[in-house]
Design a protein around this nucleic acid. Sequence first.
DNA 1: TTTTGTGGTTGACGTGGATCAACGAGGCCC
DNA 2: GGGCCTCGTTGATCCACGTCAACCACAAAA
Lengths: 267, 267
Amino acid sequence: MTWINEAPRIPCRDGAVFIVQIKATVPISIASLKAACSQCNLQELCLPFGMTENEIDRLDELVGTRRKIKRQQHLYRAGDLFEAIYAIRAGSFKTDVLLEDGREQVTGFQMTGEILGLDGISTEFHTCNAIALEDSEVCVIPYGKLEELSRQVEGLQHQFHKVMSREIVRDHGVMMLLGSMRAEERLAAFLLNMSQRFTARGFSAAEFHLRMTREEIGSYLGLKLETVSRAFSRFQEDGLVAVQQKHIRILDIAGLRKLLQHQPSGG
Amino acid sequence: MTWINEAPRIPCRDGAVFIVQIKATVPISIASLKAACSQCNLQELCLPFGMTENEIDRLDELVGTRRKIKRQQHLYRAGDLFEAIYAIRAGSFKTDVLLEDGREQVTGFQMTGEILGLDGISTEFHTCNAIALEDSEVCVIPYGKLEELSRQVEGLQHQFHKVMSREIVRDHGVMMLLGSMRAEERLAAFLLNMSQRFTARGFSAAEFHLRMTREEIGSYLGLKLETVSRAFSRFQEDGLVAVQQKHIRILDIAGLRKLLQHQPSGG
DNA sequence: TTTTGTGGTTGACGTGGATCAACGAGGCCC
DNA sequence: GGGCCTCGTTGATCCACGTCAACCACAAAA
């Protein structure tokens, strides 16, 4: 229930340092958790979206704990018992599925305010891995509590259903991308999607820093990392974007959008 | 509320014949709807799964109407206002998304007991098309009623969440397939999946009739119809399946499964 | 019965992206 | 500073699948 109890679940090389962090954050966390959602500036992007003030106040009892996850560490793994869903408070994640032979498919990249762990409801075990792309923090929402509260708070129930449905719609978009777009279209779609999500978070639509590698982008888009790299170079040649490693500046957003229509065909 | 009121929503070339059908089925429907779910032999595969007898009795008030959809007709279209989800009572469907330039991506094939329309919760408009692959019938579950009842009936709430989560997990599987498998692996995965779903419905695991065309399979698997056809032929040569048009007989299920592991790589 | 249409199969050929390989750039530790 | 390691870029070559086209099977219509 406290940070201390959560600590053993967080694998961490430099354990000592991390304990210090815990000690430092415990009093702050306990204080702020009393008003977890109602005070959070991510409301608009997160579970509370669209709920009334009264309803959000009731939400505060939902978030029992926060959890810090260091870069490259797992929030949960495929096969883990499902107990909670997670709202990203800071940082970003990728989710992936692994085949027995080692092939990896990245199924999504998640940013602040987005919800992780919905895959676990189905079987009560997680079916994918969630890995932090940078040092991150999540709000832990115990699933039993969420179901209980959403039986009482209509707005929460409705919003939770919307979050799940949005995930389904997003997945359909990815299927479209993987099933019928060519490499450059996929990357254009990816960049436009990132841009739009950064915008929603108050960052620049045109200039941002990708937290994932070319290989992870490639896995998500069903391409090899070399192909991703070549597509970036092509966009740069064509004056669509300025690329410097992970730093992206979109120069011609309309041009990127145009790439998405009427290509001859794809896959 | 009755078949008659629903009738105008069903586009139908041979209207006259259909009206006769309606007249014939109205009394039967009204009688059976009084005990929609509790009497239904699809319980195990559908929304009531895992609920207690008492809970299922309460479910009966949920299904207001049934709707017949003829082959090739839409249950709903992208852009339609979202009002209800649908449980397939008989027949089968495909769902697809269309790009402006006409490209189609089939996002799924649905069989009896499966739920359609979850994509609409997110924005209150449907985001994909649902088209009957054969003459079919669905139970119409008004969404408002479902939310209301699932605030009262814990088992319903839980089961509904599981259905949504299962859809997310399924989509991840398709992403894996589209993103990192080669053509024959995709088709093998598809056949094994169909076989498993037919089995769950009491049909033969080894012999079944596909309701969709090669082109639809191809769209779902991110392949061209010729590639699907060639893969079928290859499987036949290798003694894995006997294919005669849409009729499939699996001869070596272990062989198909083996195709799914340890291929060198994909894409 | 022939006709027409839709869906499926098969072959020949082209190509987008995978593969293999070399090299460059930035971050981190010593 | 220098060595190491991960990540990214770029080039040369290959091949799985797309494309184009001919033909076949079956069903419904004439």
